Amino acid sequence: MTTSPDILCIGSVLWDIIGRTASHMRVGSDVPGRITRLPGGVAMNIAMTLRRFDMTPALLTAIGRDAEGEELISEAERMGMHCAGIYRSDDLPTDVYMAVEGANGLIAAIADAHSLEAAGEKILRPLADGRLGSEDTPYQGLIALDGNLTEELLQKIAGSPLFRAADLRVAPASPGKAERLLALLGHPSATLYVNLEEAGLLCQQQFDAAPDAAEALVARGAHRVLVTDGGRLAAECTAGDLITATPPEVMVTRITGAGDTFMAAHIASEAQGLARQEALVRALRAAATYVSGETPF
């Protein structure tokens, strides 16, 4: 591939194994449904959506040299992603995510990102060795950063000269990992993409609506935030400047990957020159189309 990447997607790239059913579920339910295996992980989900917007992402992650890893690399390259900077481990297996979704929402999920966590800052080598940048000439473009990275690595990124010139876009991997992003709250160019629950965890309080959560995060030191709340009002806030928009109403048929789709659509919209309000509305529309089960774009 000869084209240069438009954005770096740093974080989890793995296989998603998702079981979905049209039935309501509870603990111990055993119901018919469909089980799929697709490329996934926050960084990969963002990259796949960016490709649909004709952007060219480069992946910085850890993938094993096992059969699953070889297949995953092939899929990423087939979709038009840059994979030359991926850290390939002989000892670590390719990561995997497993979830069960019912008619009543996400029932349970397990993210096995142990290989990504074990690889640590090895995945950032292309930003330091001259392939994508160095301390003297840091990377100056867009970076989508995934909260599956360890808290220690996120803290290093927050103070690293390798990221000082980047337009940093950050998403938690899940509410359970949201507090890892506290290290990036004061970063001067970081935009945080969180849902209402994750915003509450970062602020250690509960919020009734996205606008309140967005303003509270900025007051805590965030440079810029976007807060979503399912089908309810979403908000973007920076330096006291708040805008809001409401997603279109749709029938929800899938959940996993919705936040990543929103983030990628918003990044692509801004990269293509859309104004703040237009970018927010377009991203909400893309996420709503995704959860409805239709072709996103």
Score class of each variant (00 low, 15 high):
residue 64 G to C: 11
residue 194 V to K: 00
residue 136 D to V: 13
residue 57 P to F: 15
residue 214 A to F: 00
residue 230 G to E: 01
residue 202 L to G: 10
residue 271 A to T: 14
residue 17 I to R: 08
residue 125 R to Y: 01
residue 161 P to Y: 05
residue 185 L to V: 10
residue 4 S to P: 05
residue 197 E to Q: 10
residue 190 A to R: 06
residue 89 S to H: 12
residue 273 G to H: 05
residue 271 A to C: 08
residue 148 N to G: 01
residue 79 M to Q: 15
residue 246 T to A: 06
residue 247 P to M: 01
residue 5 P to R: 05
residue 201 L to Y: 02
residue 219 A to L: 05
residue 12 S to Y: 00
residue 226 L to Q: 03
residue 258 A to Q: 07
residue 183 A to G: 04
residue 81 M to T: 09
residue 95 D to C: 03
residue 12 S to N: 08
residue 18 I to M: 03
residue 96 V to M: 11
residue 148 N to R: 01
residue 165 A to Y: 00
residue 254 R to N: 10
residue 103 A to K: 12
residue 52 R to Q: 14
residue 101 E to L: 10
residue 163 F to S: 06
residue 238 T to Q: 13
residue 252 V to M: 01
residue 261 T to L: 04
residue 21 T to Q: 08
residue 248 P to W: 06
residue 192 L to V: 02
residue 47 A to E: 02
residue 216 A to T: 05
residue 283 A to R: 04
residue 63 I to K: 09
residue 167 D to V: 08
residue 168 L to D: 12
residue 267 I to H: 05
residue 184 L to Q: 04
residue 109 A to R: 09
residue 47 A to V: 07
residue 260 D to R: 12
residue 68 E to I: 03
residue 269 S to E: 14
residue 292 S to M: 04
residue 101 E to F: 09
residue 245 A to W: 11
residue 250 V to S: 09
residue 283 A to D: 06
residue 32 P to C: 06
residue 67 A to C: 06
residue 26 R to Q: 15
residue 85 G to H: 13
residue 48 M to K: 14
residue 232 R to D: 11
residue 292 S to Q: 14
residue 56 T to L: 13
residue 12 S to E: 05
residue 216 A to N: 06
residue 59 L to C: 08
residue 126 P to N: 15
residue 118 A to L: 03
residue 110 I to L: 07
residue 166 A to H: 11
residue 70 E to N: 10
residue 49 T to Y: 07
residue 284 L to M: 11
residue 110 I to K: 09
residue 101 E to H: 11
residue 182 L to M: 10
residue 204 Q to Y: 13
residue 291 V to H: 12
residue 197 E to V: 11
residue 81 M to L: 15
residue 114 H to G: 12
residue 156 K to A: 09
residue 118 A to P: 01
residue 289 T to H: 07
residue 31 V to F: 06
residue 148 N to Y: 06
residue 121 E to Q: 11
residue 252 V to K: 00
residue 154 L to T: 00
residue 26 R to T: 15
residue 146 D to G: 04
residue 287 A to Q: 03
residue 89 S to G: 09
residue 284 L to C: 08
residue 133 G to E: 00
residue 20 R to E: 12
residue 267 I to Y: 11
residue 292 S to K: 08
residue 171 A to M: 13
